[in-house]
Design a protein around this nucleic acid. Structure first.
Length: 559
RNA sequence: UGGGGUGUAGCCAAGUGGUAAGGCACCGGAUUUUGAUUCCGGCAUUCCCAGGUUCGAAUCCUGGCACCCCAGCCA
């Protein structure tokens, strides 16, 4: 992590500091993270979690985890428990501050009654369609509902009968009475309650009217004593309504909303609708598919939570449109993993090497460091014999100038083992390289030549006799376009990267890797960071590549 | 063409009238039994544009331009 860097000073931090300096919050500050339980949390939510929980921690305040569950049509307990798990995984603790907006339904109803009594809300019998057409447009004002001037008594009666289930779904709504000609469309008599005969995951069949977001949110904030209600920029226009609600009922506190820009990450999409589509159309294996930008996907991919928290700190909090390059996240993952993760050998695309002058029945083992820069991670033994596997990429018959791996007549170091020289190449019937023959120099045990000759190339390897097969999955971005655009009519296949997941069924792994437990992470030397998948077994180990190593050769080769 | 926002390097981002931090990326170079890591060095005479105020402007004023959000009984 970046303890060396001072916490960046963003505008919300400054705002809170100024409020504290002015002694506006003698009881301390309170924030909340308010997800709707209608999907899994993604990297965009992580930004909000780090902001809300982080700022509370930093200023010795409190942060609520509040499920914003006012729409029973799309919410479920599965999502509730997944969200809780993800928040904890990131390292945040809501202690005794777990809430649901639905916990407040009765109080909310009371506030609605207050509004009606004061003449600030009315029951409207217009259909959804009629409301839409009378709302006006961006440039023209709307017109008043014919039901706008009902008496408070009639409204009270109607609203209570709405609650009692006397009316059909969609037949009536409770609306705020504000201003149908407001240039801010959110103020054109917005709906506050709608009728929905749907079992709610928390309140069951207790209610058939459900409050809307714009009514619920400010009041939930007030009930919890939230001082700083932080949300994303698309709610900016809603702020006028947020304030209106708080100013027209006897709210127990006066919270204020501040908006920041939402995160978008190159090559990924954080729209719940599209993520849901990817899952339901089985483009991915589930919400926790390692290609998903969900927290559960990134966890399965092998991203440590500290990397995500670090990332959220690095990108900052502003009101600018934020489109962050993938390399920032990848760098955070590498930086989190590199110092702590043990190294191991694995060959993804095996090429057989026979050491011609190494006795057929001989075996030995070499001591390998688990971490080149940290002896405390210990060492392990790696077996060696006459037949090995090396990476196909590490051999070229006609190499370009800068290539310093194995080639006919060239000498390379087998890491921790011997220097070997390629003496012959055997081709299959199609002319492809099928096997490479080498000789080894017995004087170079461990990898150094007594005569001091320099060998530029060092490659990894695995003993053919001792290696085990494993499944290895390599990932690329799910989308082709750095800024994926989509609409519901789009054929997903057209925008998806066909190589987003490449599965290698018969990678060769060194013996020490066989018993690795799900969740364990390793650096496969020269290949990247790999994490054991939850489905892995000793019979069929499964590794996911979290991220590759930085690869200068790839760049040299491509130029 | 209504309302609300935002413009600082390829991508993020500090900067709050005193002469452009930092990260990522990129480009060198050193060390290296991972073409990794680490280390050193480079990378905005200029802050969307044009005027103006000022000894002095990314910061203040005026006028443009570009982009984003809003017309769910979603959140």
């Amino acid at each position: 992590m970046n303890e060396n860097h001072a916490a960046p000073s963003h505008f919300i931090r400054q705002l809170i500091q100024a409020d504290l300096d002015a002694n506006r919050h003698p009881q301390g500050i309170t924030t909340r993270f308010p997800p709707e339980p209608n999907g899994y949390l993604h990297i965009g939510h992580a930004k909000s979690i780090c902001l809300n929980f982080g700022i509370a921690r930093e200023f010795s305040g409190r942060c609520f985890l509040r499920f914003d569950d006012t729409n029973p049509d799309r919410e479920s307990p599965e999502f509730v428990s997944a969200i809780k798990q993800d928040v904890q995984w990131l390292g945040f603790d809501w202690e005794d501050r777990l809430r649901h907006a639905s916990d407040y339904f009765e109080q909310l109803y009371g506030f609605a009654v207050e509004l009606i009594k004061a003449g600030h809300a009315f029951v409207c019998d217009l259909s959804a369609e009629e409301i839409r057409t009378t709302r006006g447009t961006l440039t023209t004002p709307g017109s008043n509902s014919p039901f706008r001037d009902r008496s408070a008594e009639e409204n009270l009666d109607l609203f209570s009968r709405m609650r009692d289930g006397e009316f059909a779904e969609g037949s009536r709504v409770l609306r705020a009475k504000i201003d149908m000609s407001s240039p801010n469309i959110h103020l054109r008599d917005p709906a506050l309650y709608r009728i929905r005969y749907q079992t709610h995951h928390n309140t069951g069949d207790q209610w058939c009217i459900y409050p809307m977001y714009d009514f619920t949110h400010p009041l939930s904030d007030a009930i919890e004593g939230v001082t700083h209600s932080l949300c994303t920029l698309e709610f900016e226009d809603n702020r006028a309504l947020y304030d209106w609600v708080l100013e027209h009922v006897s709210a127990p506190a006066r919270p204020y909303q501040t908006e920041f820009s939402r995160l978008s990450l190159e090559y990924t999409v954080v729209s719940k609708r599209l993520l849901t589509a990817l899952v339901s159309q089985q483009v991915v294996s589930g919400w926790d598919d390692p290609r998903m930008p969900t927290l559960s996907g990134m966890r399965r991919r092998g991203f440590p939570p500290e990397a995500i928290v670090d990332f959220c700190g690095r990108i900052g909090v502003t009101r600018n449109q934020q489109n962050v390059e993938l390399s920032v996240l990848e760098n955070c993952v590498r930086e989190a993993l590199d110092p702590s993760v043990p190294r191991a050998f694995s060959v993804l695309r095996p090429l057989k090497v026979v050491i011609e002058n190494y006795p057929d029945d001989q075996e030995e083992h070499f001591v390998a460091q688990n971490h080149p820069n940290d002896a405390s991670l210990g060492e392990r033994h790696v077996p060696f014999c006459r037949e090995l596997f090396i990476e196909q990429d590490d051999f070229m018959e006609n190499p370009p100038g800068k290539f310093f791996r194995l080639a006919p007549g060239r000498e390379v170091r087998l890491r921790y083992a011997y220097l070997v020289t390629c003496t012959d190449v055997i081709h299959d019937e199609n002319g492809n390289v099928a096997e490479v023959r080498c000789t080894y120099d017995p004087e170079t045990r461990g990898g150094n030549a007594p005569d001091g000759r320099k060998v530029k190339g060092t490659i990894h390897w695995v003993s053919a006799k001792h290696a085990q097969d494993a499944t290895v999955r390599l990932y690329e971005p799910l989308f082709n376009d750095p800024e994926p655009k989509f609409s519901s009519e789009d054929n997903l296949a057209d925008i998806l990267n066909p190589n987003s997941c490449v599965t290698i069924e018969q990678a060769k792994i060194e013996p020490s890797l066989v018993s690795a437990k799900p969740g364990a992470c390793f650096q496969f030397e020269r290949l990247g960071y790999f994490c054991v998948d939850p489905t892995s077994t000793e019979v069929t180990p499964v590794f996911n590549r979290a991220v590759s190593l930085r690869d200068t050769w790839q760049r040299v080769k491509n130029q």
